[in-house]
């Protein structure tokens, strides 16, 4: 999988609503396009995106071929405790890309 970019504030107050952004480079090949040889290009998309905070799910999404290349998610959550936010992207080939970000909650 391609390069992933994440944006998590390094610090937050307990109970504060924070913005989280995540973008992964991926062609999101639909499986409906034909290549130069006339044959269908096999489908290859990220089909699931999962975000956990100290192991607990805070955001997830199922993705389908209509989602454009380089899927970009931005969402908000409530800061509860210091620790690690883990981002996982799963693709059709069974690979997962994992990125983490540390956050301090005061």
């Amino acid at each position: 999988m391609g390069r992933a970019l994440i944006n998590v504030p390094p610090k937050a107050r307990k109970g504060q609503v924070i913005d989280i952004k995540a973008l992964v480079s991926h062609p999101m090949e639909t499986g409906y396009r034909t290549g130069p040889d006339g044959a269908l290009v096999p489908r290859d998309i990220i089909n699931r995106f999962l975000v956990t905070w100290n192991g607990q799910e805070i955001f997830s999404a199922d993705l389908f071929p209509a989602i454009a290349a380089n899927p970009y998610f931005a969402f908000t959550t409530i800061a509860q405790e210091s620790g690690t936010i883990t981002f996982r992207w799963f693709d059709d080939k069974g690979n997962a890309q994992v990125e983490t970000a540390a956050i301090v909650v005061e």
Binding site: R3, L5, L23, S25, A69, N70, Y72
Partner: peptide, 8 residues
């Protein structure tokens, strides 16, 4: 250096 949309 060119940084496109999907590179942030």
């Amino acid at each position: 250096e060119w940084v496109g949309l999907s590179q942030g």
